[in-house]
Structures are given as C-alpha cells and as structure tokens.
Design a binder for these strands. Structure first.
Length: 465
RNA sequence: GGUGCCAUCGCCAAGCGGUAAGGCCGCAGCCUGCAAAGCUGCUAUCCCCGGUUCAAAUCCGGGUGGCACCUCCA
C-alpha cells in the first residue's frame, strides 16, 4: 500500500505502526446543518481507503468524530430556539443516513465531542502543567505556539503574520495562539465544568483528545493515518498536531491525507458564498450509488468539479457494469478471478488510483462480454464474472443492485405497466411482420426515455439517463 | 502580502525519467427485419520558452492561465 502524505508531499509506502493493523482518524462533520457534497466527497475518499486497507488484510480501526458543541451550533440554537441536542441529534442522524445511502461504511468508533469532555480536560490540564498552555483573565485557555518548536511543520505557515486575519486578543502571547478552552459566557448554557473553569472546548482540542482516548499508539505515533479535507491542513491539523505532540511527547499521526475540494459548475462551494450544494438535494435528483460512482471516479486529491453533464457521462460507465450483470441472471457467484482481483486491488493500493481501477474493471467487462458472446451458456464463466462483480462491490462499493432495479430507477409502477404493455404490442407486431408498427411503438418508448433491446430472452428495457 | 496546488484528445481522466491507460462523444465493420446492447478497428506528443539527460508529459528555471489555503468551511 502506498499513500501520498500531504505533509511530506510525496508518496510513501504504508508501514503501519503496529504490524497488521491500521488506525485511521478522519475529521467528521460539525452537526449544525445538512451535509453538502464536500462532506460526501471526504467521507467517500476515506471510505475507499478503509475498504482498500481491509481488502489488503489490515485490521482497520476507523474513527470519525462528530463535533456536537461549537459556536456554529450555538448560533443555530439562538436562531431556532432549539436545544443543543435537538439540533445535533437531528443532523447527526441525517448525516449518517445520507452516508449510508452513498454506501459509506460506518466507522468503528464515532465519538462525540460532548461525550469526550473528560479527555479534553485531561489533555488541556497536561498542557497547562507542562507550560504549553496558559489561561487569560477571562478564563480562556490558549495554546502557546512559541513553546512548540515544531509548530508549523505541517503546513509550513509559521513566519507569516503580514496579513494574519486571526482574531487579535490582547492577552494572547502570539497572534497564532489558539483557544483550547473558551470560558462560559453569561448567556450560554452549553458549558461544562472542569478544573480550569466552566466553559466549552475550542475547535481543535476534541480530535486530539479523542485520539488519545480511543487509541493505544506507540512511543512514536498515536495513530497511522489522519485524514480530512484539504482546508483542514491549516490551522486545524497544524493545531491538533501541536497539542498532541506537546501533551503526549510523540507525533499524532504517521501519515496525513487530505482530499481535494468540490466545486459546483466551476465555482467554489462554501458557506460564505452561500452556494453549498446539499447532499439531500443531490440525492433527490440522483440515486445514491450513481452519486457515489461519480464522486469517487476522480482521484481523491484532485479538485472535483461537480456538474450534471459529467455525472451523466460517468453513469454510462456504471451502466456497462450493470449490463454485464444483467447477462448473469440467476447465477450464483463463485470466487473472484485471482488475476483480476490482484490487478484491481493493486491499483487501489497505489494511493487509491481509482482511474486505473476503473480501467481494470472496463477491461474485465469487455473481456467478459466477449467471452459470453461466444459461450452464452458457460456456467463457470458466469459464476466467475459474478464473483468479480461481487469483489468490485466489496472494494469500491458499487454494483450490488439487481440490474433490473438499477435500470428502472425512477420509474413508477404505473409507468412500468404502460411500458410493458407497449412492449407486448410491439412483440405482436413483430410476429405479424408489421415492422412499421413495431418501429412506431419503439419510437414512442424512446420519447418516454425508454430504451429497448431485443435479446434471446425477449425484449428488455432500460430507463435512459 | 505570504504559502501551496494544477494545466494531457471535443468532454471526463490516468501517467511518478524510457518513448501517451481507460470512459463519454464521433466514424467504420460484425450482429440485428431495422435498431438498441455487445464486440472489433480508427481518432492526441502532453499550455509556452529555455535547460539537465542517451532518453522528459514526467526533473530544473522562466513565463502564461486556472484554483486553493492564510477567516467558519470537507
């Protein structure tokens, strides 16, 4: 397994800190609003990583946190009059359901910030006692970046204070010092009691604390891989790394991975621009598997330009897999072809090279179709192809549906009856050699976005696009 | 102002110093009553200019054009 490390900026051989095991921590959502396409892409990127590590024989521990206490949630409370848990429970549930729809495997552990206060308290206390953190007069606790010689080693953003837009608080020792703990304001009821006062966590501390709480680690590293969106490298991951390093005396993660951004129709999607594309809206328009296929079809580190044209183009590629599967009806799968399995897995083991992986699949599809053309009744052949498709599903998370279900997505019962009636009438016409009528009916179906194909087993149909 | 990333066929997209994968679209053929689907074949020298090398899309330098981070963000 090779992984591109976004700190060293090079591809590295993955050598786990503990033989045979892989521990992965990914920054999860702050649950104050619906998930957008960027959340989906991040989750999908690391889903592919988890599946690839699993298929490569590693025992994977995958941790993804839920940030359920935060300024944005507090803002939402004020705005809606709802309680913290009403908001966070609602969006957490929704997030998980949407990720399920995309075929994202659930994490091994998904800790919540509000349930990890004890671990944060421990870590902050340690940082204070070791002299890495200090408390100011209003009760806030800050991390002192000048005490950490390695601060900036992740993002290489140390000496730049020319246009620092970080809020300036006069009592902070350095402008880049960041809040570990925010003292309770009078009006806020989202506070927790700790040794250093009543308050709530700063943004970065939860990840470090959760990792400390849920993982064993070694003398050198806490976990193998830490992942998240490209925007998190600075300041979030830089700060996490600093806290953990100073509190534990060793590095937080051996490898850092960051997925690229999603743009919509060529424009940056962001909270401030107000053009976020919510996953729930995308899922209304497109099936979860089709979205998954599209969003994973481009390498995770590249920027992704989401648009409908490309989505429909990518769907055609998935169609081919299902057309092959359609030829295997009632076939019980046997084992995957070992050469195919190795080639496909090797592509993914090369820093998740999905493009090569998809080309391996395309080649398998073409060869299988060719073989089936000459030996349509070869049971063993069919079993092996079915096994191949099953392996694809396990590794990449698509191809699990029944092909007839897949090709009839978005067609209701009434329409199905209508389509089948038309196809019957056309078959009659064909029997009578009334090709003019048969072609007319086919045209009618085409206008309804229905494609038909005459096969040895009768006429079958597909919904187009 | 600082720090990075990217630029490959009409479109999407691999490539990681050894002579351009794959998909979509298009064209031709096989198959078909005709189609559709499937199969076969065809279609690029890699933004520009220098340099290193026996050899560069791949490395270095300089341009040009996109984008991101430095502020909540995946």
């Amino acid at each position: 397994m090779y992984i591109y490390d976004s700190v060293q900026k090079t591809k590295l051989k993955f050598e786990p800190i503990k033989a045979g095991k892989a521990t992965l921590y990914v920054c999860g959502p702050t649950v104050y609003d619906d998930a957008h396409l960027g959340h989906a892409r991040s989750a999908l990127s690391f889903d592919l990583l988890t599946r690839t590590l699993n298929a490569s024989g590693y025992e994977v521990t995958f941790i993804r946190n839920v940030t359920d206490v935060d300024d944005k949630i507090i803002a939402k409370m004020k705005q809606t009059g709802k309680s913290l848990h009403e908001i966070t429970d609602f969006y957490t549930k929704r997030y998980l359901e949407e990720m399920d729809t995309l075929g994202v495997l659930r994490p091994t552990i998904s800790p919540k910030a509000t349930e990890s206060i004890d671990a944060m308290e421990d870590m902050i206390s340690t940082l204070i006692s070791k002299g890495y953190a200090y408390q100011i007069s209003n009760g806030d606790v800050y991390f002192d970046i000048s005490k950490d010689k390695l601060y900036g080693s992740l993002s290489k953003k140390v000496n730049d204070d020319t246009i620092s837009r970080i809020e300036h608080i006069s009592e902070k020792k350095n402008s880049k010092d960041f809040a570990l703990w925010k003292a309770c304001d009078i009006n806020e009821n989202v506070c927790f009691d700790t040794k250093f006062g009543r308050g709530r966590p700063g943004w970065h501390i939860e990840c470090s604390a959760m990792i400390a709480k849920h993982t064993q680690g070694t003398d050198e590293y806490s976990i193998d891989i830490h992942g998240g969106g490209a925007d998190l490298l600075f300041p979030h991951h830089e700060n996490e790394a600093a806290q953990s390093r100073c509190a534990t005396g060793h590095a937080l993660a051996k490898y850092w991975m960051h997925n690229g951004f999603v743009q919509v129709d060529g424009e940056k999607m962001s909270k401030s621009l107000g053009n976020s594309f919510f996953l729930k809206d995308a899922l209304k328009a497109y099936d979860g598997e089709i979205l998954r296929f599209y969003l994973t079809s481009i390498h995770y580190r590249n920027d992704f330009n989401f648009n409908e044209t490309d989505l429909l183009q990518s769907k055609k590629r998935l169609d081919k897999l299902y057309r092959l599967k359609k030829r295997l009806l009632n076939t019980i799968s046997s084992t995957v072809n070992s050469e195919f399995k190795q080639t496909l897995l090797n592509a993914m083991k090369d820093d998740l090279n999905i493009s090569v992986a998809l080309s391996v699949i395309d080649e398998m599809i073409a060869k299988s179709n060719e073989a089936l053309d000459s030996n349509p009744n070869d049971k063993n052949l069919k079993k092996e192809i079915a096994g191949n498709i099953e392996f694809i599903n396990m590794l990449l998370g698509f191809g699990a549906k029944e092909p007839f279900v897949y090709f009839q997505l978005g067609v209701n019962e009434a329409l199905i009856t209508q389509i089948e009636t038309l196809i019957e009438r056309r078959s009659e016409a064909k029997k009578q050699k009334d090709f003019a009528l048969a072609d007319q009916i086919r045209n009618q179906l085409n206008i309804m976005d229905i494609n038909i194909m005459d096969t040895a087993n009768g006429t079958v149909w597909e919904k187009i696009s």
